[in-house]
Amino acid sequence: MSKTETQDKEVILSVKNLKKHFVVGGGQVVQAVDGVTFDVYRGETLGLVGESGCGKSTIGRTLIRLYGVTDGSVEFKGKNVHELKGQELRAFNRQMQMIFQDPYASLNPRMTVMDIIAEGIDIHGLASGEERRKRVIELLKVVGLNEEHADRFPHEFSGGQRQRIGIARALAVEPEFIIADEPISALDVSIQAQVVNLMKKLQKEQGLTYLFIAHDLSMVKYISDRVGVMYLGNLVELAGSDELYENPLHPYTEALLSAVPIPDPKTAKTRERIILEGDVPSPINPPSGCRFRTRCPKAMEICAKEIPQWKEAQPNHFVACHLYNE
């Protein structure tokens, strides 16, 4: 995405210095997300990647108000989502929806597929009676399921089918923005591609905007326009999908990408595998300065003393690393 392209795009979601901390036993504070800033443009897919426990899912849940905010702001279409009340909050709940990671835990086992998908329709009063049933059947067909599936219960479906039901539920209230929280990680590889292709098709047809949270770097590159890389509650790099994969700037991004399997064995030797030493530090007591410095092969003295500034190192390529500070 070029400089002009981003300037011409409408910002639908703006996250500024977002912090989400949790108080745990003994009064200790887990800094799950600690000062994250990014924008999402209308109609794009922003991918969010990083190791388990880096704060990706916490960001998604905070954006949609499943978690409160410790500090910073989340603005959706110019309004702070954590200050919305009454009708504005009701409208926001319809405009932003979430697809959850676990297709087994995210569907109520006591409800039929008809009632699961229609729950949002009922809450927002969008249809009733025969019209309600018609809308649910249309949604089932959109996600590749049949009318006969409407009266079944979740336990009668495979993981891939359940995730399609989750997508249909998210689409039921005609949202503009969907947070997909690792929507394919619990699925078989063959089903993963089907679900991702379905999401791309729906985005094109309905003009949806996605925040796509995942571990699989290859899949994130396939579906995303831009990709953000997280480490221990911080965003360390953000760039266009192709740019990030071809020209990673942050040492952590380089290490992550070096682990992605290369389909063609002839070119496999051209990439050097970077093995990070040590474990991820605890978010209760993160390292001083740069949080990645304890595992970084390029760490310098300044990395322990100062927090690296988030800056645009190259056009539309942002990074937080002392290697790029003046």
Rank of each mutant, 00 (worst) to 15 (best):
Leu140Lys: 12
Leu238Lys: 11
Ile117Pro: 00
Leu89Gln: 05
Asn93Ala: 08
Gly47Asp: 02
Lys77Leu: 08
Ile123Phe: 05
Lys20Cys: 00
Asn197Pro: 06
Glu243Asp: 08
Arg295Met: 06
Glu5Trp: 02
Gln192Ala: 12
Glu10Gln: 14
Ile262Ser: 03
Pro315Thr: 13
Ile307Val: 15
Ala186Lys: 05
Ala91Cys: 05
Lys305Pro: 03
Glu131Phe: 14
Pro286Thr: 09
Met1Trp: 07
Asn325Leu: 14
Thr270His: 00
Met1Glu: 08
Gly43Asp: 04
Gln314Thr: 04
Tyr67His: 15
Glu182Arg: 07
Leu171Ser: 06
Val319Gly: 04
Ala32His: 06
Ile99Ser: 12
Phe153Ser: 01
Ala172Val: 07
Ile213Thr: 02
Ala32Ser: 01
Arg295Gly: 05
Arg271Ala: 13
Gly289Met: 13
Met219Gly: 04
Glu138Phe: 03
Ile12Pro: 03
Ala180Ser: 13
Thr62Cys: 09
Ser57Pro: 03
Leu323Arg: 10
Phe76Leu: 04
Asn93Trp: 14
Asn247Trp: 03
Ala320Gly: 02
Arg164Thr: 03
Gly233Met: 04
Leu208Lys: 09
Val173Ile: 09
Lys85Asn: 02
Leu84Trp: 08
Gly240Pro: 00
Leu235Ser: 04
Met230Pro: 01
Val143Tyr: 12
Phe100Lys: 02
Arg65Ile: 05
Gln203Asn: 10
